[in-house]
Simulated scan of single mutants.
Amino acid sequence: MTYCVGMRLNAGLVFLSDSRTNAGVDQVGTFRKMSVFEIPGDRMMVMMTSGNLSISQSIRQLIADSQSDDGRSIWNAGTMHEAARIVGDAVRHVHAREAKALAEFGIDFNVSIIFGGQIGGERCRLFQIYSAGNFIEAHDENTYFQIGEAKYGKPIIDRVVGPATSLDDAAKCALISMDSTLRSNVSVGLPLDLLVYETGALAVTHFVTIDERNQYFQMIRNTWGHQLKRVFEGLENPVWDAAPESTANVLHSAATSSQPVRVSPPAGISAPATSRTPLQTLTQQFHDGQQ
Results as ranks from 00 to 15, higher is better:
I136P: 00
G78H: 07
E149M: 14
R221L: 00
P40F: 05
M7L: 15
G116T: 09
S177A: 14
R92H: 00
Q280P: 00
A132C: 03
N249R: 07
P163C: 04
V46T: 13
H93G: 00
N185H: 14
H206K: 14
E198D: 09
A150E: 14
Y130L: 05
R72K: 08
G268Y: 05
Q57H: 08
S17M: 05
A267R: 05
G51V: 06
A132Q: 06
G116A: 09
R123A: 14
L182D: 11
S66C: 03
A203Y: 02
S68G: 11
D140H: 10
L194Y: 02
H95R: 15
R97C: 03
S180I: 02
V250Q: 06
H95G: 00
G12D: 06
D69H: 06
Q290I: 09
D169S: 12
G117K: 05
R43L: 15
V239H: 02
M80V: 14
G12T: 07
M45H: 06
E82W: 00
T30R: 15
F135K: 03
S19I: 09
N142Y: 01
D211W: 03
P155C: 08
L102E: 03
W224N: 13
I156N: 04
R92Y: 00
W224V: 12
Q285G: 00
S66K: 12
A84F: 06
M47C: 09
D158H: 10
R183S: 08
S19M: 09
D26A: 10
C173E: 01
G133N: 03
R43I: 11
I39Y: 02
G289M: 11
D70W: 01
G133D: 02
E137A: 15
T30K: 13
Q57N: 13
P244R: 05
R123L: 12
R43K: 15
T30S: 12
S35V: 14
Q290S: 07
Q290L: 15
D65C: 08
N237E: 13
T247P: 01
E82N: 07
